[in-house]
Design a protein around this nucleic acid. Structure first.
Lengths: 222, 222, 222, 222
DNA sequence: AATGAATGAGGGTTCATTCAT
DNA sequence: CATGAATGAACCCTCATTCAT
């Protein structure tokens, strides 16, 4: 409405381009020129929307992860059994495996490099902190939400009472992230529907109170 | 014998320095100058031992992972029960978590960037191939060894017969690597002895034939 | 017209600077920094106009030799006697001796080194091929044009019929280039107007049919 | 006698190796390491025999040209006709064309680069002067000897009296060097026996007193 | 806002030369 | 004399960032 002719969403276009290029080449090997070319704008224009390369990356990350929190919070609040919730949670992740893989590579790389730096570099530490904080938040939210589901399961008697929800959440998140990482690394492991089912079965087996689980098994539901 | 004092292990010193600097700054942000400084040698000296930066990295990786295969193969061949073997395997990994963490960041970064690419970069593809192959081998060995243990467990009736050893191995490796990654990223999750025990318990619960597991649980062994 | 003042010809300035510096120091001893300094631009700016050092050199060569072909072709086509044509051709060369001397050193050096090689060097063979091809073309054009004049002379009865135009052209070009080389090397030989006249006289004596030449000699024209 | 076992001529071996490598790669692209490898000695050993790279090159040049002077002086002193002498001189050069080609490339390159330098370079100018002087001497000797033959020819009435021996010598040397250069550059010109004969014929035609030459032509000797 | 030429610090790598053994 | 590891100056080239238009 306010954008009449060619006033396309430049910022969006740049972010989209950045997503492609960062994913294709990694952070270090991505040049601002390549992003500009992919976005169809001039190199200098990037700096009208983003302070610098790191800022571009940070905002890209924010863009990609935006919306995840709300979605998952909604799932946590749904009125279904905890085991089903957990399965849905996992299904959701794997349904978006591609997206997570895309961003995952960047997270890994970025963390593996700049974010860990203590000294060095002419990059202003401020920006790094921004990204580090975003990472931290993403993971802690992820654990918190998973922990909530586990707690629900324990409270409803579905999961074994002696389970520590925090520990369980950490481990569950670790499995899922491990799979994502293996997918990113494309390391030979195959995570098709078969593996996915096995994963869910295994997780529930580990979490479930025996009777219930056994019943489910008997009913052939797992 | 005649070379005790003066014959310093320059190559070793450089590798050690490279390990530190790579770990601290990541691959891209590590300068050969920094490595040289850390090693206490001149920049040019690095090239007496390593063809280039990539070669230094590759050989560092080889150095760090050397010995792992034999050690684990030995474990696989031991004459103990599969569940105990699996626990030992995991214990081994976590006992060396620090070492894996050190190299892990580099693996992640490297894979997340250069290794995924076929085009780009002026780096000779040969070296990337070398490293890629080493990665591939490391992971596939890791899965193979884990799978062997799972198979042993199934054959001895300890683990449920319907388990696909390959799938199980992939998932187990994924959990473990997920934890390593989380450790690398230092993302807020705590993987102390408590979590470790829970992990082992959960894994065995997911793998075990019910009766046996239940017995063990009854005996309070898990 | 609207760009009179500010629109400096950066590329031209760099080429001019490169000409000076290459000529003064030779290819190998010329640093991009020196060229940049001479041109009054930053080091990095060179790479906005030329892909690399070789490309700069190649384009410099192309720039210098541009226009020669057309000019000489025109001479060949003129409606004057072959012996006069030949003399004009030589006069032209020597009138531009300075320019040929400037570029000649580079040609010699380049050919004497990199261009002879197929292996070695990290330089992309493509560029060398480019330059090698330009050299080849320059020399073959040179011979072709000279050969055409000789043929004209033979056909008109001015030159001896038993002369092989190709051989004669090769030799004539060799003399001229030999003189250029000696000038480049500044090796003590003096090629003033006196020598030039002697050269032309000698050449025509060697080429001419006896009767005519003798007549000319008798008339004191040579 | 004084060299019993392995005391081979190290210096000679190095020079031979240097000749090969310099010829193959040119001065700039030749590394001391490559020379050492070719010679089968350690890099450091080169510096026991030669002060530095330039010195090695200079001494190589001296070695190669040694003996030429005496040989040609002998020819000049022989008791044969001047035209035959000239032909022999040329024959000699072309009989050794390969050797001259080998050294020629280096002369050209060296002159084209280091020797012309006025400022710059950390190389001590002293060495350059040495080489420059050697070049100068080689060419001036070459002209002097040729001039002597021309003078003999004039005095004996074989060559035209009005010829300036110095100019003629300069031109003759220029032709010959031109051909050498073209051979070095391998520029498409073919200088087989046919061309060689034509060259000699042409030269004598240009030099010769008419009657004599005509007689020779009539006798079919040219 | 958009552009893209200009910048220049910095990185990886080479190699002539030295010197301790 | 022989060796070859060590050195470090220097080079080519990249690319994030700026700024005049």
């Amino acid at each position: 409405m306010c954008s009449v002719k060619g006033t396309i969403d430049r910022r969006g276009a740049i972010l989209a381009a950045a997503g492609k290029v960062f994913h294709a080449h990694g952070y270090a090997a991505t040049t601002m020129e390549a992003v500009a070319a992919e976005a169809g704008v001039a190199k200098g224009s990037l700096y009208n929307y983003f302070r610098n390369k790191q800022d571009l990356f940070t905002q890209l990350f924010a863009e990609i992860t935006a919306g995840d929190e709300a979605e998952t919070d909604q799932l946590v609040a749904e009125d279904i059994l905890a085991d089903e919730k957990l399965q849905k949670l996992i299904d959701n992740v794997f349904a978006q495996l591609e997206r997570y893989t895309a961003i995952g590579g960047l997270v890994l790389e970025f963390w593996a490099t700049a974010a860990r730096q203590t000294s060095a570099s002419s990059v202003e530490p401020q920006h790094q902190g921004e990204l580090a904080e975003m990472f931290e938040q993403m993971f802690s939210r992820w654990r918190r939400q998973t922990g909530a589901i586990v707690t629900q399961g324990i409270e409803s008697g579905l999961f074994r009472a002696e389970i520590d929800p925090e520990v369980a959440a950490s481990l569950i998140v670790a499995v899922v992230d491990g799979i994502i990482v293996h997918s990113i690394l494309d390391v030979g492991a195959d995570f098709g529907p078969h593996s996915l089912a096995a994963l869910k079965r295994g997780l529930l087996a580990a979490l479930s109170a025996w009777a219930d689980t056994k019943d489910q098994l008997d009913r052939g539901e797992l």
